[in-house]
Design a protein around this nucleic acid. Structure first.
Length: 116
DNA sequence: GTCATGACGGATC
DNA sequence: GGATCCGCCATGA
């Protein structure tokens, strides 16, 4: 499988983020890990800057479960509001409960095959 | 090819 | 336990 030809990493980021189902969330580090660079979490975020409209970038959070800076997404709580509408669980601390809503990439069918 | 940057993440104080 | 610093690695000029 080959990417569109442009930077494979960014293309891979979009490809994975699109796999995130509603009601679930993923972290930058997790996405970067799936791309083969667990330390390239920043690169994932950098790719989000050019995120297309159909990309559920609001389902991508920090590794701590906290949401990104409001200004970046487009408004304070804007990201959280979208997640709540999808049924994402939030902690009283204002962070997402990754223990319940962290996306488990066990259904990815592009690039990664599950053995067993 | 090199320098500088960045929607991160972990270690440290 | 919270705030801060550095490191990481791909992207762009």
């Amino acid at each position: 499988m080959k990417q569109a030809g442009m930077s494979g990493f960014r293309q891979g980021v979009y490809r994975i983020v699109r796999q995130i189902p509603a009601g679930k969330v993923a972290t930058y580090g997790q996405i970067a890990f799936l791309l083969g660079s667990p330390r390239a979490a920043r690169i994932v975020g950098a790719a989000m800057q050019a995120a297309p409209e159909g990309l559920p970038c609001h389902r991508v959070l920090y590794g701590d479960g906290s949401l990104c800076r409001g200004e970046i997404f487009g408004g304070e709580g804007c990201q959280r509001q979208l997640l709540e509408q999808e049924g994402v669980c939030f902690c009283p601390d204002g962070r997402v409960d990754l223990k319940q809503c962290l996306w488990q990439p066990e259904q990815i069918e592009s690039g990664f095959e599950k053995k067993g």
